[in-house]
Computed example of a mutant assay.
Amino acid sequence: MTVRLNPYLGFRDSARAALEFYHSVFGGSLTVGTFAEMGMEVDAADRDKVMHGQLEGENGLLLMASDSPSGMRADTGSSISVSLSGDDLDALTRYWEGLSDGATILEPFTQAPWGDTFGMLTDRFGTTWLVNASAPAA
């Protein structure tokens, strides 16, 4: 049996662009279904918005996202950040560099006081990411 905790990002109308951007960063397989494709009755302006998108990236990464139809409240502020961590410095550096495109860098990706390589940014879609690469074992 398996249980996962997956980030599910919400957007007003940019889920497709965000998922395609994350796909370019994390690789893997991307599936996107619109409200129209899922048979949902929504305003005409919302038919092509993303009802559910899922990115199964390399290294077992899983990220989901959707748009809020115009009739629903879109939460544009959150205290949640997405954290990427592990001991694969090359992969985490590659993810950092990809996510940095158009981002606001909050903390540069550099050696932190605790010895790991750490950085924090808010990407061009408003999602805050924390990236931490564990220091090599001594």
Results as ranks from 00 to 15, higher is better:
1 M>K: 09
2 T>P: 14
6 N>W: 00
6 N>S: 10
7 P>K: 09
8 Y>N: 07
9 L>N: 01
9 L>H: 01
10 G>W: 04
11 F>R: 00
13 D>A: 10
13 D>G: 04
16 R>G: 02
17 A>R: 07
18 A>D: 02
18 A>Q: 04
18 A>N: 01
18 A>L: 08
19 L>D: 03
19 L>M: 14
19 L>P: 01
20 E>F: 00
21 F>C: 01
22 Y>W: 06
23 H>D: 11
23 H>N: 08
24 S>N: 06
25 V>S: 04
27 G>H: 03
29 S>F: 11
30 L>H: 08
30 L>K: 00
31 T>P: 06
32 V>Y: 09
32 V>K: 03
33 G>N: 08
33 G>D: 12
33 G>C: 09
34 T>F: 08
34 T>E: 06
34 T>Y: 03
35 F>W: 01
37 E>Y: 15
37 E>L: 09
37 E>C: 08
37 E>N: 12
38 M>H: 10
40 M>C: 07
40 M>R: 07
43 D>H: 05
43 D>Y: 00
44 A>S: 11
44 A>F: 10
46 D>T: 11
47 R>A: 15
47 R>D: 12
48 D>E: 15
49 K>E: 12
49 K>T: 11
50 V>Y: 01
52 H>F: 09
53 G>E: 08
53 G>K: 06
54 Q>G: 06
54 Q>T: 00
55 L>K: 05
56 E>Y: 03
56 E>V: 14
56 E>D: 10
56 E>M: 13
57 G>V: 02
57 G>A: 04
58 E>Y: 08
59 N>I: 03
61 L>M: 11
62 L>C: 07
62 L>G: 07
62 L>A: 08
63 L>R: 03
63 L>K: 02
63 L>T: 04
64 M>V: 00
65 A>P: 01
65 A>D: 00
65 A>W: 07
67 D>W: 07
69 P>A: 05
70 S>M: 03
71 G>V: 06
71 G>S: 15
72 M>F: 03
74 A>M: 08
75 D>C: 10
79 S>E: 12
79 S>M: 14
80 I>F: 15
81 S>M: 13
81 S>W: 05
81 S>Q: 14
82 V>W: 00
82 V>Q: 11
83 S>I: 15
83 S>K: 06
84 L>T: 03
86 G>S: 08
88 D>E: 12
88 D>N: 06
89 L>Y: 08
90 D>A: 15
90 D>N: 11
90 D>W: 02
90 D>T: 14
92 L>K: 04
92 L>F: 04
93 T>L: 10
94 R>G: 13
94 R>L: 14
95 Y>A: 09
96 W>K: 02
97 E>Q: 11
98 G>Y: 12
98 G>V: 11
98 G>E: 09
99 L>P: 10
100 S>V: 05
102 G>R: 13
103 A>E: 14
106 L>N: 14
107 E>V: 14
107 E>L: 14
110 T>H: 05
111 Q>P: 01
111 Q>M: 04
111 Q>Y: 13
112 A>C: 02
116 D>F: 00
118 F>M: 08
119 G>I: 01
120 M>H: 10
120 M>F: 07
121 L>G: 05
121 L>T: 11
122 T>E: 09
124 R>C: 13
125 F>T: 10
125 F>N: 07
126 G>T: 11
127 T>H: 07
132 N>T: 01
133 A>Y: 01
133 A>C: 07
133 A>M: 08
136 P>S: 08
136 P>D: 09
136 P>V: 03
136 P>K: 09
136 P>G: 03
137 A>H: 10
137 A>G: 12
